[in-house]
Amino acid sequence: MALLEAKNLSISFGGLRAVDEFNISIEKGQLYGLIGPNGAGKTTVFNLLTGVYKPTEGIVTLNGIDITAKKTIDLNKAGIARTFQNIRLFKDLSVLDNVKAALHNHYVYSTFDGIFRTPKFRKCEKAMNERAMELLKVFDLDEKADILASNLPYGKQRKLEIARALATEPKILLLDEPAAGMNPNETLELMETIRFIRDKFDMTILLIEHDMKLVSGICEELTVLNFGRILTKGKTSEVLNNPEVIKAYLGDE
């Protein structure tokens, strides 16, 4: 059984059919790519899968359980975490606190514990700090734990978003253009990190990306979107050599 499955997912904005009959089936542990020219509807698919938008039609299942049109917060609890194309960090919180905020539902103590600094508070905070630092280390951010998120360079902000998403202990991680704004070196490093996450955390990853080097380097399967519809899908090498795909991209230039 697929981990995440969407069937006939559609949404319209006014007259515009931004996503039309979208289907996807992702197995556990897969590194899956969603590509397509600008405005194809990729981010909208993420917004549908994470409850930001409610689909006008279609169903989504996670581990066979129907999760269609659930709220964002419940979808995160169910095991879907994401990053954003336009970075959305908690910019006035420290790097460490950005990750600790995401540990919210895994290390729980009451408001009373927090105000009166009970032993439970201390124990929990200590465990949170350790866990957050562990995650930051994966992204080479542990040295920056104390600085404000907004003071991180762009590439590191993207990494922090991934760390934050991972902190919620998802079953599947959705990355929206993780390499955008990174230089080639950073992109290479990111590829390594994404692979590492998949292996170490046994993670399933769906990513949107325009950088074809990254896509061909790490994605096992691809779905190509064009004007809200699926153009083609399949093994990465086959899809990237498909003349229709090349045309869609060139036509977009």
């Binding site: 994470t50 930001v52 709220k71 964002t72 917060i73 995160n76 609890k77 975490a81 994401r82 954003f84 959305r88 960090l89 908690f90 910019k91 006035d92 919180l93 606190d97 950005n98 600790k100 905020a101 995401a102 919210h104 539902n105 290390y107 729980v108 103590y109 408001t111 514990d113 927090g114 105000i115 009166f116 600094r117 508070f121 929990c124 905070e125 949170m128 934050r164 998403a165 902190a167 919620t168």
Partner: peptide, 30 residues
């Protein structure tokens, strides 16, 4: 005592996370 400790706790982090970015806060289950 109440305000400073509240701010520097799990609840305070959640409150400030929402302030800084509501959509992101929702996406991490707050």
């Amino acid at each position: 005592f109440i305000v400073l400790n509240l701010i520097n706790s799990r609840d305070g982090r959640a409150i400030m996370a929402i302030r800084d970015n509501r959509i992101a806060a929702e996406s991490i289950g707050i």
